[in-house]
Amino acid sequence: MWTWYHKLSSPKWFYQLSGQWLPWIACAAVLFLGTGLVMALAYAPADYQQGNSFRIMYIHVPSAILAQSCYMMMAVAGGIVLIWRIKLAEMVLKCIAPFGASITFLALVTGGIWGYPTWGTWWVWDARGTSMLILLFLYFGVIALQSAINNTSGAARACALLSLVGLVNIPIIKYSVEWWNTLHQPATFKLTEKPSMPMEMWLPLLIMVVAFYLVFTVVLIMRVRNEILEREYKTNWVRKLIDPSADRSIKSSVKNGGE
């Protein structure tokens, strides 16, 4: 178990394994995203109250779910950074934040686009939307801190601590925002939640959620691999990997693009 764990945390091992897996995960992501999009746009029946605007849900809900679990994963990576000081976790931490922020942004904007035809307004200060906005602020904080510190591993450790503090605060923020919302707004703006969605409605949603997670995995792996090339320059295996004189295919690519 522990040898496996240490192996997993070695950048070289991760680079090789992820290189083998990446095409398959990318294929799965394209497949799921394609199927999900077609089903969501063309095959799912329209909502009897909201009409076709409810199809935005298939973007909005997966991005909202992913936005929250991205922060969770970032904080977990942060915990690993602080406890075991694993370099790979530092890279993961750094690479999750921008994606998390963009997917939170997507959730917010699609929420607005969905809200306008449904409620007649782009933005309401409801509990979920407001929590989402605050989550975006938390991401911005981590990204800003990351970019302000020059020392790579120091930046990672600072961001790790900040994301953990954020993680502890998220339930408190959520609770307070929900409580604030019940005080200030009668819950008139509520989604028409039906107890049971028919299968042809929730199946696309399920597929889209999986698709979003797969895209996230692909992006994360690609970013971490770049980060490894950037930070592990001193190691022999990276030098061998990028050395133009060692490999003809890379050499030609350098001649074409490098100079």
Binding site: V142, I173, V177
Partner: peptide, 26 residues
């Protein structure tokens, strides 16, 4: 976290202001 940084001031507000929301609300 921001003590050694040159542009610490705004950054500090940016990273901690969201955490103050529950206190403000209550």
């Amino acid at each position: 976290l921001t003590v050694g940084l040159h542009r610490g001031g705004v950054l500090l507000s940016l990273i901690v202001l969201p955490l103050f929301i529950p206190i403000l609300v209550f």
